[in-house]
Amino acid sequence: MTLTTLQLSNSGRSVAFREAGEGQPVFMIHGVGMQSAAWGPQFDTLSQHCRIIAVDLPGHGGSDRLSSGSQLPDFVGWMHDVVDALNLAPVAIIGHSMGALIAAGFAAEHPDITSRVAMLNGVFCRDASARAAVIQRAAEISAGRVDLETPLSRWFGDSPGDLAARAQVASWLGSVDQRGYAIAYSAFARGDATYASKMNRISCPFLALTGDGDSNSTPAMSQAMAAAVQNGRAVVIQGHRHMVNLTAPDEVTAHLVEWLGQPAEERIAQ
């Protein structure tokens, strides 16, 4: 799918997105340093079930960055502007990592226009040590000291599938706008608990999915998020880490198709 660019009337900023399929709108948001193409393994199958709108985060791909100092609520406000401009409400949301934080924030602030939420490798209420480490990394990125090898080693193993995905992710990380990356990473580092007290507002079908080897977006976090909402389910993919939609694409896509078909009133047993 090719990129389309839209200028937002509220801010004047441009946002780039990829679109395919028909039916209920599903807004897909990638993680920090990635771009909308990261949803490639899911495009073909999901577009048979719904209308996909996969966006580039601010400061990533073809989307204009937000202002320096922007935090998670600013990214949630940006998403609301895009949803409004494209007339998507009510909208389903799939987010990965930073995208998952935005998805949860949007659903908590706008439950009336959110039809369902899927959080892949989402973070939730880090402990003090983890929070200090990620805030320190955000400071280093803001200062221009970008270490790509450490996160890549943490996100991927040595299987052929992991190594192929790692090469693609390294390419995206290496080409991202550094200021946009720093702004988004700072919001990611500080946003893990921003909407924690409002999660109980979310009553639509909710999926929290991660890999059992993800040391930062842990299975315990996914389980806690699923328990915090009214209609939640947690899924842990065995043998995978942080980029689970790339390293276990078929399994992740199957769970997303099931989530898309879940009636709003149905609560899937844990």
Rank of each mutant, 00 (worst) to 15 (best):
L148T: 06
S67I: 00
A85L: 03
S171R: 12
A38F: 01
A143C: 04
G62K: 08
S63N: 03
T150C: 01
S186I: 00
V117W: 03
S159E: 10
R154M: 14
G232K: 04
P249G: 06
A16F: 01
N87W: 02
A85C: 04
A167W: 06
G157S: 13
A118E: 05
L173D: 09
L3Q: 12
Q71F: 05
A248P: 08
A254K: 15
A234Y: 07
L46M: 12
L8D: 02
A89I: 01
G213P: 00
A248M: 12
V123C: 14
V252Q: 14
G77W: 02
S68C: 12
R65H: 11
A104H: 06
M28G: 05
P151T: 09
E258C: 09
L66R: 11
F43K: 03
S203G: 15
Q35W: 02
A193R: 13
A184K: 04
T218Q: 06
C50N: 00
V235H: 05
D56Q: 07
Q230I: 10
A143M: 10
A254F: 10
R267W: 00
Q238A: 15
S159Q: 09
T210H: 07
L148F: 13
A228G: 02
F17A: 01
N231Y: 08
F43R: 05
A37K: 07
W78K: 02
L246T: 13
D81L: 06
G144K: 05
L148S: 05
A228W: 05
F43E: 11
S129G: 15
G23K: 06
G21V: 15
V82E: 03
L46R: 06
E109I: 07
V82S: 01
F156N: 12
E109L: 12
G157V: 00
L88C: 06
K198P: 00
I113Q: 13
V229A: 00
L72D: 05
G261C: 08
E149P: 00
M199C: 11
C204H: 03
L260P: 03
A103I: 11
V55T: 07
H30T: 00
A234N: 09
A254Q: 15
G95H: 02
K198V: 11
R51E: 03
H60W: 04
A196F: 04
W155H: 08
N231I: 07
P160W: 05
D177I: 08
D127A: 09
I53N: 10
A189E: 08
Q178M: 13
H110I: 01
S68D: 15
L46V: 07
E149K: 15
I93P: 02
Q7W: 01
P219M: 05
G95Y: 02
R65G: 10
H96R: 08
P73V: 10
R116E: 08
R190E: 11
W172L: 12
E140P: 00
L101M: 15
D162R: 06
